[in-house]
Computed example of a mutant assay.
Amino acid sequence: MARGNTRQRIQDVALELFAEQGYEKTSLREIAERLDVTKAALYYHFKTKEDIIAGIFEDLTRPMDELLAWAAEQPRTLETKQEILRRYQKALLAAAPLFRFMHENQATVRDLSIGLTFKEHFLALNEFVQEPDSSVKDRVRSVSAIFTLHAGTFFTQNAEGDPEEQQEAVLEVALDLIQQAHRA
């Protein structure tokens, strides 16, 4: 638990418990017990599990919002597209615990509409790495560059080998795809 303040500690512990035993089977009481705080202390920060997930989602997707704002101000050059992919990979890696939660609790994610927001982020990001007049193949290359980062983030979590080396390889493949799409 690297993050320091109480609110962040609650979110981190809740995400750990959700991963261990599932969202539905985790109670606020269990979260409070794991933190060694009273339920009232927990309520001070979050009234429900949904509030905890919404807070986690907001915190971990803020870098994505910042990336989209930054990208909107940049010229549509190959260098910009490459930097978008580099920054996106960092945001994905930082949000890995949330993605694990989303994958393992898909029904809950649908109910909380978190998945829709990720889809919106993805589509917006794709607009910044894709040229409007691109061929079908180049549009596929652009979207594949983003999917490569997603797939690579999940693939490397349980793969053997050096995680840093794996992430570098994932980024290199994504950058190759975007370069091919831009060149054409």
Rank of each mutant, 00 (worst) to 15 (best):
59 D>M: 08
122 F>A: 09
123 L>H: 09
133 D>V: 05
137 K>S: 08
164 E>K: 12
148 T>W: 01
64 M>Q: 06
3 R>Q: 13
73 E>D: 07
43 Y>V: 03
98 L>K: 07
72 A>K: 12
93 L>N: 04
142 S>Q: 10
25 K>D: 14
139 R>G: 09
131 E>Y: 05
76 R>V: 00
108 T>I: 08
127 E>P: 00
145 A>E: 06
111 D>I: 07
22 G>N: 06
128 F>T: 02
78 L>G: 11
178 I>W: 04
142 S>A: 15
108 T>H: 01
53 I>A: 13
70 W>A: 02
17 L>Y: 05
123 L>N: 09
84 I>V: 14
169 A>R: 14
35 L>M: 15
83 E>N: 12
12 D>C: 00
47 K>A: 13
117 T>L: 05
45 H>T: 14
111 D>H: 14
134 S>V: 07
118 F>A: 01
152 G>A: 07
21 Q>P: 05
15 L>Q: 07
170 V>G: 03
75 P>W: 02
141 R>I: 00
9 R>A: 13
70 W>F: 02
104 E>K: 09
8 Q>N: 08
71 A>L: 01
175 L>I: 15
27 S>F: 08
78 L>H: 07
45 H>D: 14
32 A>R: 11
25 K>S: 13
134 S>Q: 06
102 M>P: 05
160 E>I: 06
166 Q>G: 15
63 P>V: 06
26 T>V: 08
154 F>Q: 02
14 A>L: 02
144 S>P: 02
118 F>Y: 13
135 S>M: 06
31 I>L: 11
28 L>C: 03
24 E>G: 03
128 F>G: 00
162 D>H: 04
30 E>R: 15
149 L>Q: 05
103 H>M: 09
49 K>A: 01
129 V>P: 03
22 G>R: 05
53 I>K: 03
152 G>C: 03
57 F>M: 07
125 L>F: 07
39 K>H: 10
160 E>K: 14
137 K>D: 09
40 A>N: 09
167 Q>K: 06
179 Q>W: 04
154 F>M: 06
85 L>F: 09
116 L>S: 13
65 D>C: 05
39 K>G: 04
61 T>K: 12
89 Q>Y: 01
128 F>D: 00
66 E>N: 10
96 A>H: 11
170 V>F: 01
122 F>N: 14
40 A>H: 04
119 K>V: 14
36 D>Q: 15
31 I>H: 09
96 A>S: 14
32 A>S: 15
96 A>W: 11
21 Q>N: 07
4 G>H: 08
21 Q>H: 08
135 S>A: 12
120 E>P: 00
37 V>M: 15
107 A>N: 08
133 D>K: 13
69 A>C: 02
104 E>H: 12
33 E>T: 12
89 Q>M: 10
171 L>S: 02
31 I>Y: 14
125 L>C: 05
64 M>L: 13
163 P>C: 09
146 I>Y: 01
113 S>I: 06
180 Q>W: 11
18 F>W: 12
163 P>T: 04
104 E>Q: 15
124 A>Y: 00
143 V>W: 00
127 E>T: 09
88 Y>E: 07
130 Q>P: 00
95 A>T: 03
4 G>P: 00
11 Q>C: 07
53 I>R: 14
52 I>T: 08
27 S>Y: 10
69 A>F: 07
23 Y>H: 11
142 S>T: 15
104 E>M: 03
35 L>G: 10
29 R>G: 05
154 F>S: 01
100 R>E: 15
86 R>F: 01
59 D>G: 03
14 A>R: 02
